[in-house]
Structure formats: structure tokens, C-alpha cells
Amino acid sequence: MKARMGLLLLAGISIVSIFAPALAPQDPLTLNVPARFQPPGAGHWLGTDEFGRDVLSRLLYGGRVSLLVAGSAVMVAAIVGTACGLVAGFSGGWLDHLALLAADVILAFPGILLALLLVALAGPSLAALVVSISIIYTPIFLRLVRNLTLHLREADFVLACRLLGVRRRIVLFGEIFPNVIAPVAAQAVTCFGWALIAETALSFLGLGAQPPAPSWGSMLASARDYLDFSASNAIVPACAIFLTVWAANRTAQDLQKERVE
């Protein structure tokens, strides 16, 4: 039980977010200005924001967006990075050089800045968020998989396949790829935490989900302006972000430990 705390929490948060429409007590968009800045209480479990909207509902719907964006970005980065890493590591030569060059160029930029640039160019939208965040993290997967592939290429069981005359394509996808899945999954979970922070940062800056749609980052941003009126409106999304990232990191740690055992 203890060993799975991270995973359980992560799963819990994800499920709750996915079922936001069913679980949210109220419509996150309904304005009710007279009831603004209510403290957490009976009608609104987490209070109301500056427009009188139910914070809990906004939190749930906002989580949906944040988790969706972070999750999609990581998946795209993992898929593209793994594919390129496999080919680069296996083929070697100029393909490898090219892939590493591309990875190095992307890594040379400070992550969020690059995402900022890309979204600013493309215009704020969820799709732009997903694409730009995934671009920042693709090199990590590319390098991880490329190094693993280089290593596995020399493993005895791969050499055995060469001796059997197995086709290169099958060696790469049938023999090497299955051994790369576990490390990639562990890396993906860690990346998820980072991607979530990236998403909330961009939303905080107004480049993510556009108002009135809720997202944890934008909730944090607007709460900042009204801290005098309601501290909880800032604390709540902050805690949500913190807990989710912690859960992701913890899950990644547990995955690592299991692999060692």
C-alpha cells in the first residue's frame, strides 16, 4: 500500500478530473458576482472566486484541462522521442548525428522560454500548448532511448538474432523495443510532473486555456490579484498542482525501485 501511494494518488486525481462533469457540484462558468469571495463553507466547499464561481467545480474542470494537456504532451514527446531514439541508436552514422544535433538544439533553450516562444507564435490554444510542451521534452526521450539502444545492440541476445539472420527491422522492434518500454514509462511519469508545471506556468501567463475556461494556472493567476480578499483561492490550485506533481514524482520513484528489485 505504502509503495503505491504515488500511483494511487495520481490515479485518484486523474479519475476525479476525468469525471469532472459528473462530480462537479456546480457549473464552473456560472457567474454569481454577489456571492464572490465566499470562504469555504456549506454551499461552496472550497469557496467562490472573484466572479462568484464555485472554486471546487473550477478546480475539477481545470484539473481536466491541465492533466489532459500535460498527459498528451508527454505522450507525444515519448512516442516521437522513442521512435527517433530507436532509429538513431540502431542505425548510427549520420542519422544518429542528425538526431543528436536536433536534440541538442532544443535542449539548448531554457524549456519554458521555448514553449513561450512557440505558443506566442502560434497563438494561445490548447493544441499549441500540447505541441510546444511536447517539443521541449522530446529530446529527453530521444537521448534515453538512443543510449539504451546503443547498449542493447551489443547484448548477446541481439547478437544471437544476427546469427539467426533475423531482419534488422524485427531486431529493432521485436527485440530491442520491448526492453526500452519500462525505462521510457518511468521517464514519462517524471516528465508528466514537469509538463504539468509547464502547463500551469503558461496558463498563469495567460497563454493556456483562455478565460472563462478554468485551468489551474489561470486560477492561480487571477487569485494573485485578489489575495487580500481570499487567500484560499490561491492556496487551493497551488495545492492541487503540488499534490499532483508530488504524486507523479513519487510514482516515478516507486517504478525505479521496483525495477531495481
Partner: peptide, 27 residues
Amino acid sequence: QFIFQDPDAALNPRQKIRTTLWRAYQA
């Protein structure tokens, strides 16, 4: 053909024995 020294390194840890043996025929 070749018989390797370390059976742990010579068999793909993420592959069932059936697939490992099938590879030769597949090729």
C-alpha cells in the same frame, strides 16, 4: 551457430521463450 556463455544475457528478458525460439524459424 553460437552458444553463449551467460544464458541470462543470451535470452531476451522481455520475451517469452516461445517467441525466442520462433525467431529462427521466422528468419
